[in-house]
């Protein structure tokens, strides 16, 4: 019997993005880290890109697929490493959603009080850099809290937190710039395309 199921365009997109994220994740894990817990987190560029272009549902699928499949490939499935990776991914995505909603609320209040009205939510939403900083800080603190709560419940661990957060901010800015350049490049191409073929819209 042949198993047959139909796939949509969205499924293909999720698969493509997840494959990209898994590849980056595995390449990254091959490099040694100067300090335990500090990684460039370039796989999160894909998650952030997905979040900003296609919304949180697609981003959630992509990041869950990345965490599960790359842990299966690296042999860390259901190990503490996997648990930390999963909690980091979930923490960062939920804080991204929270940030988006907060800035949307901020936009609504601005529109209430301004006479002319800011017509576009795009003006008040943060760009990729802001989101990347939020994502990397929450990723780091989520992992840190899990590590502290489950594996090393020692108050001395908190001495490490400021250093980790410093690196999270710096690496967040870097991955934010990468994401922003990707998105800008893509939008520029889309706009050029639509200018070339005005009938297609």
């Amino acid at each position: 019997m042949k198993l047959h199921f139909t796939t949509t365009h969205e499924d293909h997109r999720v698969a493509l993005l997840a494959a990209l994220a898994i590849t980056i994740h595995i390449i990254e894990s091959a490099f040694p880290s100067p300090l335990p817990g500090i990684k460039p987190g370039l796989a999160n560029v894909v998650t952030l890109f997905t979040f900003m272009m296609y919304g949180w549902k697609t981003a959630l699928q992509v990041s869950l697929l990345r965490v599960i499949i790359s842990s299966l490939l690296l042999g860390t499935f259901l190990s503490p490493t996997f648990l930390l990776s999963l909690s980091g991914a979930l923490f960062s995505l939920s804080s991204l959603i929270l940030t988006q909603q907060l800035f949307y609320l901020f936009h609504l209040t601005l529109r209430l009080f301004s006479r002319h009205g800011l017509s576009d939510n795009n003006y008040s939403q943060p760009g990729a850099i802001g989101y990347a900083i939020i994502a990397s800080i929450s990723h780091m603190s989520g992992q840190f809290l899990m590590a502290w709560y489950f594996f090393i419940p020692h108050p001395g661990l908190f001495k490490l937190l400021p250093i980790l957060i410093t690196f999270a901010v710096i690496l967040g800015i870097v991955s934010g710039i990468i994401t922003q350049l990707t998105i800008s490049q893509l939008k520029r191409k889309q706009i050029q395309k639509s200018q070339l073929q005005p009938d297609n819209q």
Binding site: T99, F103, S124, Q125, P126, G127, I129, G130, I133, I134, V169, I173, G176, I177, Q180, S184, K187, R188
Partner: peptide
């Protein structure tokens, strides 16, 4: 196209 938006500066 902007790299830094006002909200980004606030978050940073």
């Amino acid at each position: 196209m902007a790299i830094f938006k006002p909200a980004d500066v606030f978050i940073l």
